[in-house]
């Protein structure tokens, strides 16, 4: 749309590799270049003048990362999978929560362009796929000049083990749980919008676990581990897997309290300040989302 953007692109170095190997090589040849997939965040920054990449490595022609395959009871998702693709029914049968997150991620134009890999690498606090991947305990496969490596997605998101120079996100390994999963997002409006809070919840009957992650309330998705263990212990895994509504409500409160904790008292003994109204509202939102997410997963 902007006249500026069009003219900017002409003057720059652009590589359009057609395989992962070529992409890694292109990035090694142009270390200052920035890889671009859907470009829904990157190009907006370029247009706004916040980013002036010396070169671009376009990932749109790499077909091998645009689909998915099965590997040892897990799905190996290409980083170039678009949100639109993940939202389709065949994918939803595989990983329902990720499909729900993909369908909720912005307007159709964004979903058609934005990719799973982009969502992870951008690591925006409101990234809709992130709490789902955290709840699924997914891992990412990185391709780099020194070979490939695999690490938990949370290590990448928290910056514990960041992308190294020249590395590309190639695949995401997601365990297939064959059990209900939910993703719920509060935006405050009916049309597409960024999450004020989101909750992803998956059941793992094989390990008798409930895993939950809360997005958008912190820079990275939060896992309320104690709440997960507590609620998993209440569920009759061999029976109907039902839970009393009061337990769902308590779970919601437990999750919300864990993710938006009470302020600590001062070190000099001053009493803890009160939670500001915005945080109380956020806590209520997370509690409602977590309660509904659990209720729907067990329904």
């Amino acid at each position: 749309m902007s006249t500026y953007a069009r003219q900017t692109a002409q003057a720059r170095n652009v590589a359009l590799p057609s395989s992962l190997e070529e992409a890694v090589a292109a990035l090694a040849a142009m270390p200052t270049a920035v890889p671009v997939a859907g470009g829904t965040d990157l190009m907006a920054s370029v247009n706004a003048g916040l980013l002036r990449p010396a070169g671009l490595v376009g990932l749109g022609r790499i077909n091998e990362t645009r689909g998915w395959q099965y590997a040892d009871g897990a799905a190996l998702l290409g980083a170039g999978l678009t949100h639109a693709r993940m939202g389709r029914p065949d994918f939803a049968a595989l990983i329902p929560a990720l499909a729900a997150a993909a369908r909720a991620a912005g307007p159709p134009q964004i979903r058609n362009a934005g990719t799973l890999g982009g969502n992870i690498v951008t690591a925006a606090p409101t990234g809709d796929a992130l709490p789902v991947l955290a709840a699924l305990e997914a891992s990412v496969l990185l391709a780099g000049p020194q070979g490939n490596r695999e690490l938990p997605v949370s290590h990448l998101l928290t910056g514990m083990d960041p992308l190294r120079p020249g590395e590309l996100l190639a695949y995401v390994r997601v365990p297939l749980l064959h059990a209900p999963q939910t993703f719920l997002k509060a935006t405050g409006r009916t049309g597409p919008g960024r999450a004020t809070a989101s909750v992803a919840l998956v059941l793992d009957p094989a390990r008798r676990g409930v895993r939950c992650a809360v997005g958008a309330v912190a820079p990275v998705p939060l896992r309320p581990l104690e709440a997960e263990r507590w609620v998993a212990s209440l569920i009759d895994w061999d029976g109907q897997r039902t839970l009393a509504p009061e337990a769902c409500t308590a779970f919601g409160e437990y999750v919300a309290g864990a993710c938006i904790p009470d302020p600590l008292p001062g070190e000099d003994g001053t009493p803890a300040p009160e939670l500001p109204p915005a945080a109380i509202q956020l806590r209520r939102t997370v509690a409602a989302l977590a309660r509904r997410a659990l209720g729907r997963a067990l329904a």
Binding site: A186, P192, A288
Partner: peptide
Amino acid sequence: WLLPGGPEGAGEPGA
């Protein structure tokens, strides 16, 4: 139903 929060939102008819 198109509930508050949108087609993929968290809306629940009971609330």
